[in-house]
Design a protein around this nucleic acid. Structure first.
Lengths: 196, 196
DNA sequence: GTCTATACTGAGATAGAC
DNA sequence: GTCTATCTCAGTATAGAC
């Protein structure tokens, strides 16, 4: 089924992925069609099927590529920031960028909300996104506590869960309020309560 | 358009609302159909149209009734708990209940995520939900700070935003992870960092 | 790799009988 | 208030030519 990997894709397949990714962020899995993708890419509907036989496969590869890119951004953060507090803010900035551009949600946040209507391979990719985020955050927070930068009253894994939840929720809230206030603001507030 | 008010509805219209509410929590606005509702209620599709002419109107009334009920639950919390910390945990328990029943999302959280594909009257109802939540939370937190129960390093409105975001996000995260860990856990972690 | 053409299904919605 | 019947359109997907 989802044995396809995004690294093996050609140019127009990548453009299809770009379009689908944007549509999922904006409308969700149930809110976009092959025709929407086709219009954005500038080709016809059956050509989309040529690249991705089913909508589920398309979504799975979108999530897969999204997660891969996100993890590479986490690596960049590690290279750029030493302090845990700075890393947490840079993490929030990743979501903030996507949100402030066009109030786009995190691809996997949107898919997570829709999890009940997703095919299993798609849900599996989404799960990987969340796992890798929580692992990364927990490690950052643990370090921050050991460095004495963050309060140690709560376990790293629990704080990681809370931090990531706050980012996802901030975007949902911002959309619901039709507001430009995004996850960066929430991150700033939360970080103030976490400082040692 | 959405001049209809849920208090003026008869018995079977209420059953239609119940079904639609559950479907929105589970699949989202774009993920359910009039036929799904009809099957759940045990009547035929055109009968749904008799009660709610359009899908947008149905969703708007669902959101309206949901917000109304939610606010009444907030009043109950005020009557049952005096301390701000207890109120915050009871608030989280509202979401926890919905989540643990069948991993259902907050109706307005789901609709907020889908805001880009909602008709304006629906989006307006959703906005009211978030506003009333933030107002209530900010008041509770302000009191908690004045009572000396919560740290005062961050403004009540900002903490309210963070708290609510964390609840919404916790449910998205739980779904994405296919896990039963819900907003109550996140609330517990966050509260520990907020204690004075 | 892209197209036209087309199948098939389900969607939201209306007409009109009971 | 509920039904049958029907409309119209959009959705996913396939066949087969270029």
């Amino acid at each position: 089924m989802s044995s396809k990997h995004f690294s093996e894709l050609g140019d127009s397949a990548s453009r299809v992925l770009d379009a689908a990714e944007g549509l999922i962020q904006q409308q969700g899995y149930n809110g976009f069609s092959y025709d929407d993708v086709a219009r954005l890419v500038g080709i016809k509907k059956p050509s989309i099927h040529h690249h991705f036989a089913t909508k589920a496969e398309l979504a799975a590869v979108v999530a897969q590529r999204y997660t891969h890119r996100f993890r590479s951004e986490l690596l960049i953060i590690e290279g750029r920031h030493a302090k845990a507090t700075d890393r947490l803010l840079a993490y929030a900035a990743l979501f903030e960028q996507r949100y402030t551009q066009d109030r786009g949600l995190c691809v996997c946040g949107m898919l997570g909300a829709e999890a009940a209507s997703l095919a299993e391979p798609v849900a599996a990719e989404v799960q990987l996104f969340f796992r890798s985020n929580l692992d990364w955050l927990a490690a950052v927070i643990k370090e921050g506590q050991q460095q004495g930068l963050l309060r140690s009253s709560v376990k790293p894994a629990a704080l990681a869960e809370a931090w990531h939840s706050a980012m996802q929720g901030a975007m949902v809230l911002g959309r619901g309020l039709q507001s430009d206030r995004g996850p960066a603001q929430v991150a700033k507030s939360l970080l103030a309560t976490l400082l040692a």
